Amino acid sequence: MRDWIGRRPELGLYDRLMVELRNEDPRAFQNFMRMPPAMFDEIVQRLTPALSKETTNWRAPLDPGLKVALSLRHHASGAKYREMQFGWKVPHNTISLVLRVVCAAIVDEFRHGLLAPPQTAAEWRQISDNWMNSWNFPHVIGAIDSKHIACKSPANVRSDYFNFKGFFSVILLAVVTSDYKFLWIDVSGKGSSSDVHIYNASDLREGLQNNDIIGFPQLYLTFWWEMMLSHSGPT
C-alpha cells in the first residue's frame, strides 16, 4: 500500500472532513452528501450487514460508512474515480468495485419499500390530490422525464448508445410524485433512443393500455387514452 493511502484515517475526507461537517455545520454536510446526517446514518446502518467484511492478515476492510460515502459523493458530484482517490485516499480501482457493491446493496435493501406502487384506487387518488394541493395540477398521477447516464462505449453497438449530447449513455426514464419520490423507473433505454420510443416499449405503457395496473382509477385511464389519441407520444 502506498504511504499516502495508509494515512486515510488521519487525512481522508471520510475521517476528517465529514466528521468536521457533522459536528460543526450539518447544512454543509447535507450539501456534501445530498442528505442530512441522520439519513446518512440510517442508510449506513441498514447497509452495514451487506457491506461488512472480515479483517484479514493482509489488510483491514473499508468501513461500511466510507463505502456509502464514496458512492453517494460520486453520484452527487460525477467526479471520476482517479480524481476521488486522492481526497478519499482509496485507490481508484477499489472505488470502482465499491460503487458496484454499494449500488447492489441499496437496491436489495430499499427497493421494496421505496418503489412500492399504490395498490388501491384511494392511494392513486391521494397521489393525484397531492399534485393538486402542491402544484395546482388536476388529474395528475406523476411527472415523467428522462436522464442520460454516461457509460463506456459498449462493444459493437457504439451508435446505439451515442446520444445527441455527444457522449455514450443509458437512459433513465422515470415517473415521480409531487414530492419528488420515484413512482416508476426504466433504465433499459439506449442513449440514441427518444423518450417516446422508450415509453412506448415500457411495461408502464403496456400496463396502462391493458388496464393491468392494480387499483389505477378508471378516470385517469380515460384521460390517458384521450392523450394517446390526440398526440403522437406522451406529453
Rank of each mutant, 00 (worst) to 15 (best):
L173V: 14
S194I: 01
S232T: 13
F164R: 13
S232R: 14
V176T: 14
L229H: 14
V187A: 15
S96K: 05
I127S: 04
W124V: 09
W135Q: 06
G207W: 11
V140S: 12
S192A: 08
V102Y: 00
K165A: 11
Q218S: 13
G113S: 11
I95R: 03
N200S: 04
K147I: 13
V98P: 03
T177I: 02
P154L: 04
L204W: 11
N133E: 02
I185D: 08
T222W: 09
A104T: 08
P154C: 07
H197E: 04
V170P: 01
G166K: 06
H92K: 10
G166N: 07
N200V: 02
V107K: 10
W124K: 04
S193C: 11
P117R: 04
L208W: 14
V170S: 12
S193Y: 08
H231V: 00
T94Y: 01
N210Y: 02
A122M: 07
S128D: 08
L204R: 09
R125P: 03
F182M: 12
W225A: 10
S232L: 09
L229V: 05
R125H: 09
Q218G: 06
I95K: 02
F216V: 08
W224E: 14
I214T: 08
Q209F: 10
W184F: 15
D212Q: 12
F110A: 11
R100Y: 02
S153F: 05
H139E: 06
S232D: 14
A121H: 02
H148G: 12
A201D: 04
Y180L: 14
S192F: 03
A104K: 13
F223L: 14
N210V: 03
S178D: 12
D129F: 02
H197T: 00
C103K: 09
E226N: 14
V102K: 05
P91A: 04
H92M: 04
N133T: 04
I171L: 15
I106Y: 05
T177C: 09
D160C: 09
F162R: 00
P91V: 01
T94N: 00
E109D: 01
N211D: 07
N210F: 00
A116C: 12
N136I: 02
G113W: 02
E123A: 15
V157Q: 01
K181P: 02
S202M: 09
Y161I: 11
L173R: 09
A143I: 06
F223S: 05
